[in-house]
Every structure is written in structure tokens, then in C-alpha cells.
Amino acid sequence: MKFTSVLAAGTAAVLALGLTACGSGGGSGDAGGGDGDVTITVLPKNLGNPYFEASTAGAEEAGEELGATVEEVGPDTASPDAQVPFINTAAQQGVGALVVSANDPTAIGDALEEARSAGTKVVTFDSDTEPQFRDLFINQASAEGIADKQLELVADQIGGEGEIAILSASANATNQNAWIALMEEKLASDYPDIELVETVYGDDDDQTSFDKTAALLQSHPDLKGIVSPTTVGIAAAARYVSTSDAKGKVAVTGLGTPNQMREYVEDGTVEAFALWNPTDLGYLATQAAAALAAGDITGEEGDTFEAGRLGEFTVGADGEVLLGEPYVFDESNIADFDF
């Protein structure tokens, strides 16, 4: 597992390197434009999100290694079609590649097809479009692995029984919906004593997610756990619970970043949560985009490429490249991370 080994070996140094975008020459510079003529536009779901700030830092690290120009653009809010103008502008500018975390699987499809027709390679990461709209999808972990890990965490923290709720991002987010569907299936088959009573959407907005948490606790007085598969949602939920009567009674888990969640782990609001390394995710997506732009790969199943410090990757079915497996953060290790 590349992800686990990166975290286990020199974690703090690697993450600090990624977040300051001070890459030390990678092994795949020849694959993506060492002559400096490749331009890559990074388009997260929205700006101002710590998760995407970390992934963009990884993208900048890769760009520095490759001699490519990396520019981040994006909307202030995550809505289905908010990314379209940025895609159109990048295509008009003739960028070599777009690295996009999709707010919607189809709403940006036409814009991406036009960009590809103009010669721009399209790599999705974190949240995918329909496969026909892009060349590659850099998946942070398998959907099954992410869903399973979150259920394992909440089941362990509530003693394997009781009511839980899900606090998601937007109702159209591809990755969120895939994980939720798998969690629902797994709950029905493997967790008969746990009941999912409601799924709500905070739209990856801190205040909305905070308010949704309050509403969940009011609507479901017997609630034992909240699972939030989004970094904005889990932090907002933990913030609310940390100063409420629910602290110590309602478990909060899901997907979060260590810097957002540290105070809530340290004060006992949150026992454990999971994620992958978003810096590595942005780094890998940019390495793949550069390889596509250089013509070293086409995105076909079986293509292989070198991704600098992360090593070699192989393109799987439907143009998917897998970073690794989810990693669990708790009081025993959270101090080792800075992102």
C-alpha cells in the first residue's frame, strides 16, 4: 500500500514538504514537461477549503518537480455548475491539462468535452465525473474501502448498536453519494443493530453543516453517532457537539484533516476519524496530468507512469488510478501530522 508506507515512513517531513510545495526534484520529470512548457490548471470544488488547500499544495509540489506551471482557480461555493466558467477559460487559454474535483457528475460534462476537443487533457480527482468526460480519475481510495472504514469507526465507537445519521456535502457530489450508497448496503447486511435514521446535506459549508448538526440532535434525541464523509462537515459537527450536552454521548466520525480535528480529538469530542493524504492526492493527479499532456500515457487500462516520490502507478478499468487505503487518525498519532 503506497499510502500506508508514505504515512509510516517520515510522515511529518513528507507532509510538511507537500504543504509548502517545496518538492525536491522527482523521478518523473521527463514524463510531464521538464522543459517548463506544460500548464496545468487545478480546479477544486471550491476555494477556501483546507482539504483542497492541501491537495493544491501537492499539485504545486509536483509542478515544481516537473517544471510545469500549476495554477489553482475555482468558485467560492461548491455548486453543480459553478466550475463551468473556469473550465471554459482554461480551455480558451489552451492549458495542457485540467485537474478537477467535480461538484457534479454531469453538470460540467459539456464544458469538459469542449476542453478535451480543444486539446486539453482532463484528470478528475477526489470526486469524479461520468467517465466519458475525462481521461483519468485519480481516486483517493476505493469507494468500498472508504465506506467500510467509516462504518467500522462508528460501529466501534457506539458499541455496535443504536441510531446514526450521515452529514454529507452536496446532494450531487459523486464521491459522497457513492460512499453513502455503499454504507447503506453494508449497514443492511453487516450491522443489523445500527439504524441510519437520516442523511442531511451541509453543502460543504461550515455554518450550514453546523446548523444541520444541531437539527439532527434535536430531531433524533436517541442519536448515538454522526458520520460525516466530508472534511467541512465533520469539523462543523465536532465543533457543535464539543460545546453541547451531546459531548461524550454522540460519536462524531467520518473523513477529516488532522489540523481541523486535532482540538476535538484532544478534548475528547472525537475518538477517531479517517482520511487519506490530500497532499499526495493532488501530487499524484498532477503527475498523471503531466504524463497525459506529454503523451507518455493515454489513459487506457494498463498504462503505467512514474509519479515522483510515490512510485509507479497503473491505470485500471474506466481510467481509474488508485492512491491507496484510508488511514485512521486518533489521539495516538494525530500530533504527527500537519495538514
Rank of each mutant, 00 (worst) to 15 (best):
L196P: 03
V95C: 07
E161G: 04
T286Y: 15
R116C: 03
Q92S: 14
I158R: 04
G27D: 12
G67I: 13
P131A: 14
A111T: 12
K247M: 10
Q140C: 10
T314N: 09
E161V: 07
A91S: 10
V232T: 15
A102R: 00
N175K: 01
A272C: 08
D280Q: 05
I146D: 11
T4A: 07
S332L: 01
V100R: 01
Y327A: 12
G34F: 05
D330H: 07
N259E: 06
P192A: 02
V321W: 00
N46A: 06
S127F: 10
L15V: 11
E53F: 03
E61V: 04
T41Y: 08
S332P: 00
D156T: 13
V95A: 02
D336W: 00
D35Y: 03
A31N: 09
V250T: 14
L281D: 05
T69P: 00
I164P: 00
A90Q: 07
T77D: 08
G18K: 02
L98V: 01
A59D: 02
A82Y: 04
L7N: 06
I146Q: 15
K149Q: 13
G202H: 03
G67M: 11
D296W: 02
G67L: 14
T253W: 14
E144H: 10
N177D: 11
A141N: 14
E271V: 11
G268P: 15
L151C: 15
S24Q: 06
F337L: 12
T257D: 11
A335G: 13
L47Y: 09
E300Y: 15
Q83S: 08
E60K: 08
G36I: 04
A293K: 07
T208Q: 11
S242A: 15
D203L: 07
V100K: 04
E53R: 05
F133Y: 15
G254S: 05
G27I: 04
S209K: 08
V42M: 06
T174M: 09
G25W: 11
A169Q: 06
F137C: 01
L284A: 12
V6Q: 06
L136N: 02
I194M: 06
D211G: 02
A78Y: 02
F210L: 14
R309H: 09
G67A: 10
D126V: 04
E263N: 13
I334R: 03
S117L: 13
D126M: 05
Y264N: 05
S5F: 10
T231Y: 03
G26W: 13
D126Y: 11
E331H: 03
